[in-house]
Simulated assay, not measured.
Amino acid sequence: MIDNFPPAYFTRNGATFIGDSRELLADLPDGSVNLVITSPPFALQRQKEYGNLDQHEYIDWFLDFGRLVHQKLKDDGSFVVDFGGSYMKGVPARSLYNFRVLIRMVDELGFFLAEDFYWFNPSKLPSPIEWVNKRKMRVKDSINTVWWFSKTEWPKADVTKVLAPYSDRMKKLIEDPDKFYTPKMRPSGHDIGKGFAKDNGGAIPPNLLQISNSESNGQYLSGCKAVGIKGHPARFPAKLPEFFIRMLTEPDDLVVDIFGGSNTTGQVAEAEGRRWMTFEALPEYVAASAFRFLDKGMTPEAMRSLYDRIAAGESVSIDEYRQQTALAL
Rank of each mutant, 00 (worst) to 15 (best):
G85K: 15
S86V: 09
Y87S: 09
K89C: 13
V91M: 07
P92C: 04
A93P: 14
A93M: 14
R94I: 11
S95Q: 07
S95I: 02
Y97T: 04
N98M: 13
F99I: 11
F99S: 10
R100G: 14
R100Q: 14
R100C: 12
I103A: 10
I103R: 14
R104T: 04
R104W: 05
R104S: 03
M105W: 03
V106N: 06
D107Q: 09
D107P: 08
E108N: 00
G110E: 01
F111P: 02
F111R: 02
F112G: 05
A114R: 10
E115C: 05
D116Y: 10
D116T: 07
F117P: 09
Y118N: 02
Y118G: 03
W119F: 00
W119P: 02
P122F: 02
K124Q: 13
P126I: 04
P126G: 00
S127E: 13
P128Y: 06
E130W: 14
N133L: 15
K134R: 14
R135G: 12
K136P: 03
K136W: 08
R138Y: 05
R138A: 09
K140G: 15
D141F: 07
I143E: 06
V146I: 06
V146F: 02
V146T: 04
W148P: 01
K151P: 03
E153L: 08
E153G: 08
W154P: 10
P155N: 03
P155Q: 00
K156S: 11
T160N: 08
L163K: 05
P165L: 02
S167Y: 01
M170K: 12
M170I: 10
M170A: 10
K172G: 02
L173T: 13
